[in-house]
Design a protein around this nucleic acid. Sequence first.
DNA 1: CTGAAAGCGCTTACAG
DNA 2: CTGAAAGCGCTTACAG
Lengths: 353, 353
Amino acid sequence: MGRQKSTELSGVKEIARRANVSIATVDRVIHNRKGVSEATRQKISTIIAEMGFQPNILASRLASKKVNHFAVLIPKSTETDYWESTIKGVERAHQEIKQYGIVLDKYFYDLNHKKSFSDAAKLLLKKHCDGVLLAPSFIREATDFIDDCQSRAIPYVFINSDIPGKDSLCYIGPHLYKSGHQAAQLISFGLKAGKVLIVNISKEIDSYHHLLRKEEGFRAYFDNNRGAIKMIKIDIRDTDQRSIEDALDGVMSEHQGVDAIFVTNSRVRSVANYLVKRSLENKILIGYDFLQENVKYLKQGVIDFLIGQKPEEQGYVSLMMLFQHIVMGVAMPKVNYMPIDIITRENYEFYKN
Amino acid sequence: MGRQKSTELSGVKEIARRANVSIATVDRVIHNRKGVSEATRQKISTIIAEMGFQPNILASRLASKKVNHFAVLIPKSTETDYWESTIKGVERAHQEIKQYGIVLDKYFYDLNHKKSFSDAAKLLLKKHCDGVLLAPSFIREATDFIDDCQSRAIPYVFINSDIPGKDSLCYIGPHLYKSGHQAAQLISFGLKAGKVLIVNISKEIDSYHHLLRKEEGFRAYFDNNRGAIKMIKIDIRDTDQRSIEDALDGVMSEHQGVDAIFVTNSRVRSVANYLVKRSLENKILIGYDFLQENVKYLKQGVIDFLIGQKPEEQGYVSLMMLFQHIVMGVAMPKVNYMPIDIITRENYEFYKN
DNA sequence: CTGAAAGCGCTTACAG
DNA sequence: CTGAAAGCGCTTACAG
């Protein structure tokens, strides 16, 4: 391991020397603090530019002992589900940056109750906070909340879905339409002609809007590549296994000879379970999300493909974005679409959420 | 933005106070330096454990001005190729950690000349270095080099491929066998019966060994799921377009009615080009790597699937591993397989190498 | 508008 | 074997 006392001329001390001022004044200029004559400011700015000076962020955070609070507002998770991965990613990012004085405040809401969102949001706004990371599941409630954020000049990033028309620091999540498109392409690769069933399962009317965007993309693919594919669709609003099976029995008997099924969310496991019970495993089945239960059916060959949305990376990237923007002062892209991952029984063991 | 002077009792000062010693002695114990009586060491260790003390890495690196040199030894890249991405990932990681006093020394060799590897390795070993990241393309030469590393106690990580039997800090790269398996599954999803052609294109005898592991995995899939698939194979050692086309013409006329082609590396673009020239775009074509030229044919529908090996992430992760191990003292997994990514014309625009 | 001085939490000679 | 003191590059009161 080398050791080396710095001999190079750099840092605030050198700037101060060259400008013939104290380092305190240099500091004022670096941070755009007032109380510096225009002339001195000019002189120092020029020197900074010439030197290509980059402040030492370690020393800066150490000396200032500055603390930033970031708040995260997402659905609460139940065991092994999707949002569990998201919060895991957020926490992993926090581990990496907490030494810079980043405090993470977590707020969760219940996807079945809009009010829980507003309640959590209210709590959140009671404490000081320098940036927010939110999953705006409920359009109205989320809109109210971000209006509050805006009036307090708190920057926020959308995760997993966005609110069309509402400007945020950044959106991090999937391109829903395209992911539906991808599902369609996979089916059409394996099925040149036949009947395809689209299944939406959700009691959430609000989040239904996500599913619809996937469905649109799915349909559009066959419109452009129209061939011998017929499409049927069913919406299932009661999400217990029994109701799902009844609904599927209904549609299957009404429309004989379904060859492939596209489930627009992670409930594909319920459909897989149904297919096994009815000995219909040979149908092509595609759905969403790398969840334990889904992978089980993938391994068995009941589910052919899962489309992954990288919830953990979403969480990780989101918090990092906030950090890069607020602490490091780095510019960020407006949109950061997650990859559309294709998971199969051959590659699932190497998959990273 | 909050500000807050620390009031909590923590840090070396507090340890020193509790142990009734100076902070210098505390420092000696923290870093296992000698020159401390066993009694004092015991006392201090206990206090450290009790407090759950974690040294402030920012302050530590700032005060010590310690510098670590990491060396990277990989093939030199030509424009937009695979290794270009790898070095990009390495450099991105370096950007993030250089503030900790990490210096990156880059060495490149020519994949067409084994000697260039040894030469670069010799150069590398002339300078001080705390860790090495290497792509061991040439087994013999790489083995000699890591023996040197071992005798100097320099830790090293393998990237992109490993040397079976040679223990390293860590291997970061694809699971070659499984990725061949994946290619086979995709083909079999789209082709229930027919003829499949395996194509190896490489003038490199050494790196041939990689391709072979992919081919093995590919074949094994059809052995397990044997059906109406016949396999043919061709090795092409002259990699100019003309020779490739001649070779393909030969095999195609000898074996009529090939339905699908699996190219075991990124040269799939050459085969795609050939198929276009002969108006054979309707055949299923699968190959490797997210390179511009390959994506061009993916968009056109000539290539059906590309398998991505995440070269950039390989580079990023590798350097981070070295950093985590050497600077942060964190334990690392022995193997870090990259995901086996499936890239299509529907999802390529969201793909990250 | 400006500067001297103390301090962030740790490390490093140096002296004993 | 141990400690007092200076210093890393920056920030923050405080005084002028």
